[in-house]
Amino acid sequence: MKYFLSMSFVLLCLTLAGCTSSPSTNSNSNELSGQLTLTGSSTVAPLAAEIAKRFERQHSKVRIDVQTGGSGKGIADVRRGVADIGMASRRLASDETDLTAHQIAADGVGLIVHQSNSIAELSPDQIIAIYTDKSNNWQDVGGDDKKITVVHKAEGRATLEVFLKHFGIDNPSVKSDVIVGENEHAIKTVAGTEGAIGYVSIGTAEADIESGVPIRLLPLDGVEAKTVNVASGAFPMSRPLNLVTADPSSQLAMEFIQFCQSADVHDLVKSQYFVPITKGSDIAK
């Protein structure tokens, strides 16, 4: 009898322990609490803020503050311990191996021109010629007689690095007419200038085309610049959107990152015009 009682007590304990430990992402769980601070890339920030809102709704004791300021700031803040998680819209550089990157979405980079531009597609050589000032007129690449206005990104931007690497150009040899910072700035510039060409996040461009901005995405290597092609891995130019942590990171941070990578947030990723990742696929290595 005594034996039976102690057995049942042990069982009871086990079931209780099981109950409290297993559903850590369940809506009625109450063991996750605390505060997380995210800083970094302005591209990732709106997405991270939306995911954080949903995470907070599921865990009422958790507070997640999303700040912005650029990928560089995110990485610096994580290193100094000012932020728990950094956001970076690029791969980690060779001198940043002390940190761990967790990809939460992918983003394609596509070339855009003004809607009125008659050009159908540009070959990589033509694009290189345009950006290194060897072609100055759309006539040279089979278009109308109009001066080419080259829109380029500022040094350090992730889209710039992806673009330069894909075409094998080094930045000092690029001769541009306008240098911009943000994707939206590039799109507004191209939309306002008939002879302009630029490169931006495909999701951003698609969203703006949907709302009637007069720009057009050019296909690359025969592949249409569309988020679906980025998702399938067919589109050749893309970049990862990462969350970055220093090595011993808190349980809450890991829990949040897992949530960001789960299928529960794919609708949010899509609503911010990015490409959700499924574990195992390596769209943007």
Binding site: G70, G72, K73, A76, A93, A154, G156, I179, V180, G181
Partner: peptide, 29 residues
């Protein structure tokens, strides 16, 4: 326009010191 070149006329693009900071700082290592 933010091109770093000695401006040749008023209609040429240029980059100011503070625009330079704002453009590159967020992404600088």
């Amino acid at each position: 326009g933010n091109i770093v070149e000695m401006p040749s006329s008023l209609l040429s693009p240029g980059r100011t010191l503070n625009a330079n900071i704002a453009l590159e700082l967020g992404y600088a290592t």
